[in-house]
Nucleic acid binder design. Structure first.
Lengths: 298, 298
DNA sequence: CAAAAGCGATGCAAAAAATGCACCGGACGA
DNA sequence: TCGTCCGGTGCATTTTTTGCATCGCTTTTG
């Protein structure tokens, strides 16, 4: 879309931090890029970059402008998607930012199911911690977010919420494996591996541990739930995950048990979008599908 | 704003109904305009005009696109307004579509009051019947609408509502002038002048008349409340208006009396904007001022 | 029923805009 | 203090846009 070319250049400059670097990235000369920006600032009626000795940075006016352009670009994609829908062909692209738990089972299954009915629709799936997921929505780089325990919730419009009780993940034969439900203090008595502080599971556990005045003492911390799941196969340690990210198979030699909600309250897995935004057809329909599938977890 | 040039051309074509006429209107050759549109349609991925034997007309895709562009343009103005606000100067432009009743007293007073504090802000005031006012909001050609008894209310976000009882307007010495409050049947027994069916006052009176099974028999119909007000000075006829449009002065020789709400319910004067839209700073502040002033009428 | 008028589309040359290149002056870091 | 990286600018070149003339088609008009 040619009329957004200047904006793409501006975004490039914001990313690169200097006009010359951006020009280099985007196969244009610095002078041409520089003048494009000067021309734009002139007709816009205000500078949008601070000129620093080592480059440029958006000023407040520029921040407003970039937000506007991002919204405009995303709305144009929505229009194109609706137009494609007019001619009968359901085409389009859906971008989802999600927590790790959704990656192995839930999302692949949902996307495959959707695509059997609408093979013209493509997807991008990005793993994001809960904060980054919300940021992706706000910058229009994702249409949908599916995250456990989001943080800010400003500009996050909840489409669906399902409670998820944190489960422990231990190998068969672990002392805790013969209980129906485990207590938090039992977990803390065993070696435990935890996600980093960016994740909702960790936040819930921290809260609970503080209330129980027993500090968390992880023997390992990771930003990969996959790592933690594999780790507990090698040592009598305890890992944590929410049920939507688990699908226990006997041959894995792992046991899954819920933590008592007396100790750790259930967290919320939220499906959401940027507040007030009209999603492209494909994304909106896919979100409906997700919401329906999530109903099963309530 | 140059990147919206193509859109301005498209709007021109929509208005003119043909590329050649539009080209003529906008000081460009038909061929250049034609090719701009073709290029745009190509990169947009779909035709936006139906080619008819006598010109062109938007197809559904084009309708979607035009709506998108109008929203973009208006949002860009909002950004510019906020940017101007950043630098301390409250500048900007406010466009209001309003019913006739607001023209003589209420709006001039409000605008003047606002401008004493913000002389950098300019205004456009357009008289519109209630349907056109709502259309103006939807096409982003007005920021605010102040109308009596709007019709559709889709896409109309109510910022403030005040009840207004319809009043009769008669000359001093008229038989009805010695009552505190008049009944509808009394009005119908006298010659009466009515606004056309586009106006809320007429709609309320029609409803009431139907309920009372006494038909309205206007001796004159007009789309100008000003005309009707002047007319009753010449004959013992009855005219109607809402109080916000009235400011009786003894020297005019006119009397104003409310119609009993047993006969005609009070209508609503609504201040509204396009649903979901973020108004430019100046418009938003002015709307706050209007809302406050309208409080006085509750 | 034929001529005229109006429409969108297109080939081609002219005009306008954007770009690349070379270079300036200033700030910063080694 | 010298070298480097920055944004800015004058000028020639390339690319894009525009205007003009004209085609083929349909509707209107006489």
């Amino acid at each position: 879309m040619k009329h957004l070319q200047t904006f793409r250049y501006i975004e490039g400059v914001v990313r690169a931090g200097s006009i010359r670097k951006a020009a280099d990235d985007m196969n244009i000369t610095a002078s041409a890029l520089n003048r494009r920006i000067q021309r734009f600032e002139e007709e816009f009626g205000s500078e949008i970059f601070e000129r620093l000795p080592r480059g440029v940075r958006l000023n407040p006016a520029g921040e407003l402008l970039v937000q506007h352009f991002r919204a405009q670009e995303s709305d144009l994609r929505r229009v194109q998607s609706q137009v494609a829908d007019l001619s009968g062909e359901r085409r389009g692209h859906v971008s989802v930012a999600c927590s790790q738990a959704l990656i192995p089972y839930f999302l692949p299954r949902q996307i495959a199911a959707y695509r059997t009915h609408h093979p013209g629709v493509s997807f991008s799936v990005t793993v994001r911690d809960r904060e980054a997921a919300e940021r992706d929505l706000a910058t229009f780089s994702s249409d949908l977010a599916l995250v456990f325990e989001p943080v800010h919730l400003v500009d996050f419009e909840v489409l669906m919420a399902v409670p998820q009780i944190i489960h422990v993940l231990i190998r068969e034969g672990h002392p805790l494996a013969n209980r129906e439900e485990v207590r938090l203090r039992d977990c803390l008595d065993h070696p435990h591996v935890l996600p980093t502080r960016h994740y909702g599971v960790r936040a819930l556990l921290e809260d609970a541990a503080t209330r129980g005045s027993r500090p968390l003492r992880p023997i390992a911390e990771s930003d990969s739930f996959d790592f933690m799941r594999h780790y507990v196969a090698h040592e009598d340690a305890v890992a944590f995950q929410i049920p939507i990210g688990l699908q226990p198979r006997p041959e894995d030699g792992l046991a899954v048990r819920p933590i008592s909600t007396r100790d750790v309250p259930a967290g919320s897995l939220l499906l959401g979008q940027m507040r007030g935004r009209t999603l492209p057809v494909a994304s909106a329909r896919f979100a409906q599908g997700l919401a329906k599938a999530l109903e099963a977890f309530r």
